[in-house]
């Protein structure tokens, strides 16, 4: 496998599309960098130009201005064959080809290296076999790609980029259509290649809290600019708050994810040992719009001290006393009383 280093420098880039004879810029003045051994997430709301930026970086469409440098060499100066050895790409659309086996899909990745007739050498076969192992698809070699699950197909597509053996891999929303487990596993897989093979992997995504826990860097596309930095840097700088201008959604800097704003219906305090029960009781109460306070709470709740005997003792307004045996009943009861229904 190649151990090429690749550093990507994007300077003052404008991306957009051609409309008739004129050009429409979607985003201007993009300045970002990427280095070997970095997993990078591209984040931004729908329609802000993520896919356009990725397509421009892969050379599928021309930049409207500025420059993209791979190791100080301009993107435009690479021939299509040279580029195929520098970067590989996975698009967001699910591929549906009939009668194509996983092995054959991966073999396509050797295209830039094989002879005129596309004959695979022993070395090519070894590389394909290794990629299949790496993405955990061993035993799937002869399965048809239209007869495997979305998660498996996405793994196969990622394996194909490994087979293409490029220092830079670009993926457009690799975790769309996947269930939570597969989302985590795919991001984790990418994280592994970045670290073990010293590759640069850039992917766009909407899964904020998965990516903030795994990526080295985020390119965040906002309405007026593109900022980059470690996920924590961007959270501390308050950049995520600027992503949406919405009364209903806000960025919770503690949990690192977007949350829905709730109407506050009261205050509460909890008494009892901290731990799992404590945390999930908090979550349940926040869900119905109660806010934690130490001073003069409306509701005081004694949480169960052990998981064998689940009983919440509730005191509302220092008067009413209730004993409730599940969080479902607790939240329903409190919501009914406090929201004035």
């Amino acid at each position: 496998m190649s151990n090429q280093q690749v550093n990507i420098t994007v300077r003052n880039l404008s991306v957009g599309y051609k409309k008739g004879k004129s050009f429409v810029a979607i985003k201007e003045g993009i300045n970002v960098n990427a280095h070997s051994g970095e997993l990078i997430a591209l984040i931004g709301s729908n329609g802000i130009g993520k896919s356009t930026l990725l397509r421009t970086l892969t050379g599928f469409q021309k930049a409207l201005g500025g420059e993209i440098l791979f190791n100080d060499r301009k993107l435009g100066s690479f021939s299509i064959k040279e580029l195929a050895r520098v970067l590989s790409f996975v698009s967001t659309e699910a591929i549906r080809v009939q009668n194509l086996r996983v092995w054959e899909l991966l073999a396509m990745g050797r295209y830039p290296y094989t002879n005129l007739m596309g004959t695979l050498t022993d070395e090519d076969n070894r590389i394909i076999q290794r990629a299949i192992q790496q993405v955990g698809l061993a035993g799937y070699e002869d399965r048809m790609i239209d007869q495997i699950s979305d998660g498996e197909r996405q793994r196969a597509m990622i394996a194909r980029t490994l087979v293409q053996d490029t220092p830079l891999i670009i993926l457009d929303e690799p975790t769309a259509f996947l269930d939570i487990r597969n989302k985590y596993e795919i991001i984790h897989l990418l994280h592994d290649f970045v670290k073990t093979e010293n590759k640069t992997v850039l992917f766009s995504t909407h899964d904020l809290n998965i990516s903030t826990s795994e990526v080295d860097k985020i390119w965040l596309m906002l309405d007026d600019k593109v900022v980059e930095g470690a996920p924590e840097d961007l959270i501390l700088a308050g950049n995520f708050d600027q992503m949406f201008h919405s009364d209903k959604v806000y960025f919770n800097a503690e949990s690192g994810d977007f949350m829905l704003r709730k109407n506050v219906i009261g205050t509460y305090t909890l008494k009892g040992p901290e731990g799992r029960i404590f945390n999930w009781t908090c979550r349940a109460l926040q869900r119905i719009g109660l806010v934690y306070t130490e001073t003069k709470p409306l509701v005081v709740i004694n949480i169960p001290s052990e998981e064998k005997n689940m009983l919440w003792k509730v005191e509302i307004n220092s008067k009413e006393k209730l004993e409730i045996s599940s969080l479902y009943e607790l939240t329903a009861e409190l919501y009914k009383r406090l929201s004035g229904l």
């Binding site: 299509i80 790409f89 080809v97 396509m108 830039p112 005129l116 596309g118």
Partner: peptide
């Protein structure tokens, strides 16, 4: 016979074919 290799790589669509150097 000389277009076999190109036809294979075009199965995934033009964009993928291009990204693999076709």
């Amino acid at each position: 016979f000389f277009s076999i290799k190109s036809l294979d790589v075009m199965l995934l669509g033009e964009q993928y074919a291009k990204s693999m150097g076709l």
